[in-house]
Design a protein around this nucleic acid. Structure first.
Length: 276
DNA sequence: AATGCGAACAACCGCCTGCAT
DNA sequence: GATGCAGGCGGTTGTTCGCAT
């Protein structure tokens, strides 16, 4: 408890279940506003700011608490950060169930990771770019998935033609690791990565490539068997507003765990599809 | 089992903005 | 227009947890 000049006390630190309940009841009754009156009414010895923050970050309905960022959410954050900068609240508005605090924490964790990688590489006096990065396939942004209309099939066939194999080191610019200026700025045309040799998702069966050039993937993870067993696909990031609204996200958390954790960190902005 | 370390999360602080007076 | 206040936001710090050694 911290005593104020007016004699009242302000409580700081972790919230208790009882406090949460009181706050929830207040919001139910009065709505998420007038935070300062919570204290003036004697309901809680917390500042209005603290109450608001607790509501926004923990008590608000439909929050994805305790749930790691999906691959799609990670991508969206990276794209939106490139577009808006550190406007976490703005970015969070595109990610249903995520708060600005979530996004901020995610980003700073990512940044620390990058810092450490950079530091490690500098200490080793090596090229900061890892040489054994897996090859990924970069798909055009206008790819339409999950529909079987003639138009969509046509678009899909176009997409297959545009489909490119790109090795990650080819996408890397040395200055992307310049941590002085922050993180790599991804000029994001939404892109999709298809890691090879991962379990294929049922909804993606029809995306398997019949004419796939398996010779292209021999270097992938130095695996002896270069032919991919399957293809896995991350759903389109085209509409960020839809993120997280799907019941079964096609990119479960465990899926992303299969990736090198810093995979996105090494991506260079792609030329627009017009230049392909 | 103890310890160290990194990641994730929770909460606070200070600044800024918008609005009412 | 000046002032005060509430709320919003970004940065930062503290705490907890899980994992490796």
């Amino acid at each position: 408890m911290e005593r104020q000049s007016d004699g009242t006390c302000i409580k700081k630190g972790p919230w208790t279940a009882e406090e949460d309940e009181i706050l929830m009841n207040y919001v139910k009754k009065y709505g998420p506003r007038g935070w300062s009156s919570i204290r003036s009414m004697g309901l809680l010895p917390r500042t209005g700011k603290s109450c608001r923050l607790r509501w926004v970050n923990k008590l608000r309905p439909n929050l994805k608490t305790g749930c790691k960022f999906s691959a799609e959410e990670e991508r969206a954050v990276i794209e939106l950060q490139a577009e808006f900068g550190n406007k976490w609240a703005k970015i969070a508005r595109h990610l249903p169930g995520r708060t600005d605090n979530d996004v901020k924490n995610f980003w700073s964790a990512r940044r620390k990771r990058l810092d450490r990688i950079s530091q490690t590489q500098e200490n080793k006096g090596k090229d900061p770019v890892p040489h054994e990065m897996p090859m990924v396939e970069v798909l055009p942004a206008n790819f339409v998935q999950g529909s079987s209309s003639h138009e969509d099939q046509f678009k899909r066939s176009l997409f297959m033609e545009e489909f490119q194999m790109v090795s990650l080191p080819d996408l890397i610019k040395p200055d992307l690791l310049n941590l002085e200026t922050g993180l790599p700025v991804l000029d994001i045309e939404p892109i999709r990565m298809i890691p090879l040799d991962l379990p294929i998702l049922p909804e993606c069966q029809d995306l398997a490539l019949e004419s796939f050039d398996y010779n292209c993937v021999g270097m992938f993870n130095n695996q002896s068997e270069s032919k991919p067993k399957s293809l896995t696909k991350i759903p389109s990031a085209g509409s960020h507003a839809e993120l997280g609204n799907k019941e079964n996200d096609a990119a479960p958390d465990c899926f992303f765990d299969e990736f090198p954790t810093d995979m996105f960190d090494y991506l260079e902005p792609l030329p627009s599809s017009l230049e392909w």
